[in-house]
Each structure stands twice: as structure tokens, then as C-alpha cells.
Simulated assay, not measured.
Amino acid sequence: MATLIRTLTEHSDDVNCCAFSSSCLATCSTDKSIRVYSLNGFTELPYSPLQGHTYAVHCCCFSPSGRTLASCSTDGATVIWDTGDGRMLAVLGQPTGSPVRVCRFSPESTYLVSGAADGSVVLWNVNSMKLYRSGSVKDGSLVACAFSPSGNFFVTGSSCGDLTVWDEKMRCLHNEKAHDLGVTCCDISSHPVSGGEHTSRYFQMASCGQDNKIKVWFIFFGDFLGVYSDASSYLSVLTL
């Protein structure tokens, strides 16, 4: 059973994303702003709205600690904010200048991924606020991203329907056509599944797309030495 607690109406245009931390709710909108609410009564924090983007804001996410918030926009920038006082800590410009569609922190807040409309993907070092590695997919906009619980690999999803597995050095480990009409979202389970004999681990991932399908995947992570198998065994799928 679900009960409506509060309806928030402060945004003046489409609300594109929402994200929780342990104490706050953040929302971002085509109206160029990010709003941050306390979970205690869902009142807007004094420093909200956060304004700095010059075009629509597509995605926002908290770091695991909740101390920082990232947002990304059509303006080609990913901005990192201090959730204590709303200060803008860094503006990370996509090297290609392309609109940024998705951003995501790694589990230890070591890295931040930004994925853009031209298929470029950047791994930022959060401590230095500088570019660490970059790569790209062949076709489509990057619209989805999910990190493994350990943070040593992540998956991106594109508008052309591909899922791509990357390691922390931005090596493309595998690419798979997943959804005919484009990926819309993906997420990885926080708990690995044992492959037996303590020699391998699998992570469960769900992806969804504009083909009206949800696909549940097993991502093979290698043996006890952390060595990857051949690419053919990275992803196996159960379609729902």
C-alpha cells in the first residue's frame, strides 16, 4: 500500500530525475535548476534551488556519503555541489562539449562518470576534480549508468540499445545489443552471486528499454584473481 505524503511543485518545467541521500531529496528539471529538500517534512533547504546550469538539467545523484551532489546538463557540464551549504565545488566540462545526459558516483566516491549525447563517457577523479580517463561508444547517446558494488567496473546504456561494460581504467570489456529501441535505465545488485567453488562471482543487473522489456543479466566478474574471462561470457540474459 502506498500513501502520498507530499506533492512538491516548485519546479516550473519537466522534472527529469530525483535522488535520495540519507537526509535529503534532490530533483532536477528542464527549468535549469536543482532543488534539495530535507526528508524532515520535505521542506526546501535554505540554499535551494541550486542554479548554475544554463540549459536543462537531465540527471542528479548524491555521493554515497551524501556530502556532495552531482548534476549534468545540456550545457555540456557536470557540476559538483556541497550539500552542506550549496556551494558549487567544481564544473566538469565534457571534453567534447556535448550535452551530458547521465552522471553517477562510484561506491567509494573515488570516481564520477559523465555520459553524453555524442556517446562520450568520462571518468572523473573526484579528489582532484580532474579528468582521469575517457572513452566513447559507437552509436547513440549515453542515457544510463550503474557501478558494481566494488566500483571496479561499471555499465553504460545508450539510446541505440547497447549495454557496455567498462573497468576502472576505462577499458571496454564488453558490448551487447540489449534493447532494440534504446536503453532507458540500468542498475546492478549490491550483492554478488557465487559461481560455486569460490572461483567466480556474478553480479545481477537489470536493464529496461523502449522495447517494453526488462532484461535481467548475470555479469561474470572473473576468478579469485580478478581475471576476466573471454568476452563471450561477460553477459548472459533472462528476458522478462
Rank of each mutant, 00 (worst) to 15 (best):
A2T: 14
T3F: 09
T3M: 07
T3K: 10
L4N: 13
L8Q: 02
E10H: 09
E10N: 04
E10Q: 08
D13A: 14
D14H: 14
V15D: 01
C17G: 08
S22N: 13
S23K: 12
L25Y: 11
S29T: 08
S33D: 07
I34E: 02
I34P: 00
Y37A: 07
L39D: 07
T43F: 14
T43S: 11
T43E: 12
E44L: 10
E44H: 03
S48I: 11
Q51I: 14
F62M: 11
S63R: 01
S65H: 01
G66E: 00
R67D: 06
G76R: 08
A77V: 13
A77R: 14
A77L: 14
T78E: 02
V79E: 03
W81D: 08
D82F: 03
R87Y: 09
L89Y: 06
V91E: 15
G93H: 12
G93W: 06
T96P: 03
G97T: 08
P99I: 07
V102L: 11
F105M: 10
E108Y: 07
S109H: 04
T110H: 13
Y111V: 02
V113L: 13
G115R: 02
A117P: 01
W124Y: 10
N125A: 15
L131Q: 13
Y132D: 06
R133I: 03
G135W: 07
V137E: 06
V137A: 04
L142N: 07
F147I: 10
F154T: 02
S158L: 03
C160A: 08
C160P: 00
D162N: 13
L163E: 01
V165H: 10
V165G: 14
W166E: 03
M170C: 15
M170T: 12
R171Y: 07
C172G: 11
L173W: 10
L173T: 04
G182A: 14
C186S: 15
D187R: 02
I188R: 03
I188P: 02
S189Y: 09
S190Q: 15
P192S: 05
V193S: 10
G196M: 05
S200R: 09
M205H: 05
M205G: 06
S207H: 03
Q210G: 13
V216I: 13
W217E: 04
F218Q: 00
F218E: 03
G222P: 01
D223F: 02
V227D: 08
Y228F: 13
D230P: 01
S233N: 04
S233A: 08
Y234N: 00
L238W: 13
T239P: 02
L240G: 03
L240S: 03
